[in-house]
Structure formats: C-alpha cells, structure tokens
Design a protein around this nucleic acid. Sequence first.
DNA 1: CCTCTCATGTAAGACGTTACATGATTCA
DNA 2: TGAATCATGTAACGTCTTACATGAGAGG
Lengths: 185, 185
Amino acid sequence: MKGVKDKAMSIKYTILGLLHYRDLHGYRIKDIIEQNFNHMWTINFGQIYPNLKKMLAEQLITVREVVQVGEKGPPRKLYSITEKGRREFNQWLSFSPDGKTLLRDPFLMRFVFFGFGDKKRAVEIIDERVRLYREQLKKREMNLERWKDNDIYVNLMAEFGIKMNKLLLEWLEESRQKILESEEP
Amino acid sequence: MKGVKDKAMSIKYTILGLLHYRDLHGYRIKDIIEQNFNHMWTINFGQIYPNLKKMLAEQLITVREVVQVGEKGPPRKLYSITEKGRREFNQWLSFSPDGKTLLRDPFLMRFVFFGFGDKKRAVEIIDERVRLYREQLKKREMNLERWKDNDIYVNLMAEFGIKMNKLLLEWLEESRQKILESEEP
DNA sequence: CCTCTCATGTAAGACGTTACATGATTCA
DNA sequence: TGAATCATGTAACGTCTTACATGAGAGG
C-alpha cells in the first residue's frame, strides 16, 4: 500500500480513470475534465501535458501518434493505459487516504468581510454572483441531460454538483434579504 | 483599480480583514482561520509567517513585540493594520474579480471512478466518509453557537458551511442506498 | 484576411504543503 | 519523563496558473 499518497486532486489518477473508458489525447482529456468536473477543478494544458509525459516515463500509459486525415491541427497523440497503470489506479481507488473537503471560493472569502465595507456595494456584488450561479446551474443541468446514460457514479456526482449549485444560490438569495433587512452598525 | 488581482484565496487580504477586529500574532491568525474558515481552507505556518514578512515590507502592517509575562513560549509579535493596509483591503473588498467556486475533494474524485472497482469496498469507503462528515458537522454546529454574537456576514458564512456539510451528508447517504440497489454491470 | 478551434508543448512564477529546527511551560 | 501547547521561523518540494510559442484548417 506504500506510495499511494495524494492529497491534491491528482490529475494523474483522473487521467488513468478516464483512460479506462477509451484512449484519449491531451486536448480531449482537458475537455472532459472541464465539462464533467468543473465544480471541482480548473484544468489547463500546463498541467496535462507535463503529467502525461511523466506518466509515460513511469510506464503507466503508452502513446501512439494518429494523423487525422483531412482534419485541422497537428497529429493527435493517443494515450492508452497499461497493466501497470491499472494496478496503480486500483490501489488509489481502494486505499488512498482522502484529504479534506474544501470549498474554495474567493467570493465567499470577501463575503465574510463585507461588514467592513459599503452595504450597497456588497449587495451589488452579491447580485452579480447570483447571476453567475444561475448561469452555472443552467449549464450543469444541461450537462446532466447529456450524460444521463452514463454510469451511476458519474451521474450521482453530476447531481451533487447541481445540488451544491442550488444550495449556493438559495443561501445567497436568503442572505441578500437578511443583509438588506439588517441595521447598519 | 489596478493591481487588485487575486484568483487564489489570498491569505493577504484575510489577514488584513482579521486585523480590522484586533491586533494579532501569527499563531493566533492560524487559529482563527482554522476555526472559522475550515470549510474553505487548510492553513499552515509555512504560509502565514512568510506572508506577514512580505506584508510588513509592503507597509500594509506594523509589528510590535510583546513579552507575555509568566507565559510559555517565545514573545509574541503583534501585528496591526496600517492606513495603507486599509486602503488596499477596501479596494479588494469592492473590486476584486472573483474566480470560480471550486469544491476540492479527493474523495469525490475517487467516487466518480468507483464503478471500476469493487462495490463492497466502495460502500466501505462511503461509510467511512459519512462518519467523517457527521463529526465535521457537529464541530461546525458547536462553532456557530460560539460565534453567534458576531457580525451578520460571519454568521451567514458559518451557516453556509453547515448547510454544505448537511447537503454532502444527505447526498452521500442517498447515494449509498442507490449504489446498493444498483445492479452490477 | 482575420479569428476561432484543434492540437501540441514550455517556462516562469504564484501558491500550498510538509518537514525540519528551536525552545519554554504546563500537565499527566 | 514525556507529551502537548504556545510561539517563532525556514527550506524543499509539489501543484496550479498564466503566458508564451507554433501551426494548420474552417468559416465569416
């Protein structure tokens, strides 16, 4: 069980997980993570390509170059998971010690200190945020529709993202009301 | 409005915010953040002390050394916010562009892939997690009691932490049931 | 012609985590 | 005596973000 340590989100295991479904190239991996794990992650190429390189060196994956005839852009590099990759993935899946659940939100951080600023401005900022959360919710609900046929865990996870989004919205709207009703210090 | 950019949680502004209430030393700042922002952050000295040093150089804060007579440990360094610090803080409070809300949870990341592993083991891991969320919830509820007299924003934030915790618990318990009822692939 | 999308990648820097190092006092 | 708490801090390492660099084809 040694060696399976990762407190962070771990792109490594996410990639290994995705490669269980089908072979993928870097650009596509980014797409999938962006669409499906957007409530947990912001992903970028600066993370993906170096990781793939490293995983290749560790022999967790293999590559083959595929030229898409009549398609734009450079040839794709399709990655596949190896037996070693599967073994490490399974170790992680069953025995990785989980870190804490963290809701990282710079807005919420500001929110706590709104008492030191102007109330009118605070409400303005909240309104902006409400709009943003509404848009996000719409997107997630559409996304869930698209993936409905998927496996149970993926669906449950997507449903959770929507629930969290709704909670955030409800809470913010209630808070807005309470703030308006509150007396100035 | 230039120069106010921070996508990350920004210890800097959090410290400036806390110094609005009273003068603090590094160790105490860590305590407060740990107790009050635990659903958003894990904080450690490796972040706090270097930041205080930097903020001192930027003249956002000042220090004075205070020897606690008859107290254990080295003398405390009490930090105060300066006028410049207040100005920067207010800029941030009113005009910082907020990044995305991210729920970082290594457990949830594993959860998505449970379909590739053993169902019995998956349920075991979920049960462990349920216990952990229950404990967390208890702590947060006690914490809210302690801070009840605080300002409205701090309270709303704490309430949100509790709501999120409850949602996570409910969702996980429901999911556990659905997983048990589901057919093996 | 210009911008968008697809597709690869690197480099610098910001941010976060863990481990180490020191040392006094309190409590079991 | 040994562990825990209070209190300071540094160093090394990992992770994440942003910006840069390249280039082809599609569509307006």
